[in-house]
Amino acid sequence: MSQFMYLYRGGEAGGTPEHMQQQMQKWLSWLQELTTKGHIKTGGDPLEPTGKIVRKKTQITDGPYAEKDLVGGYTIVEASDLNEAARLASGCPHFDAGGFVEVRPIMKM
């Protein structure tokens, strides 16, 4: 088994309270299913939309506000290969919010 990182990019949450709750239910059942099948150890972490960009010792700016397709969170999954990891991501509810998932193999030692 290899490890992969799902980066949840872009997308915007919104809509009516009922819609947002349904979105969350979808996420929970999607991650639950991956967990049950042994692909996930933890659900991952959401990231604050704000932060600092540090380019050099003297160049620290607020950000990354303007960036398109901001990373909103990540999950680490286990899959046999990149194709399987990508296939497992295809049911992600993030698409409903207009976002997409970037699937990146985590380098092995």
Binding site: P17, Q23, M24, L28, G43, P46, G72, G73, P93
Partner: peptide, 17 residues
């Protein structure tokens, strides 16, 4: 209220309710 729901959705969807 809307912000609170958006935040709940962002956090709970990955960390659980």
């Amino acid at each position: 209220v809307q912000d609170a729901f958006v935040r709940a959705l962002e956090v709970w969807k990955l960390r659980g309710v």
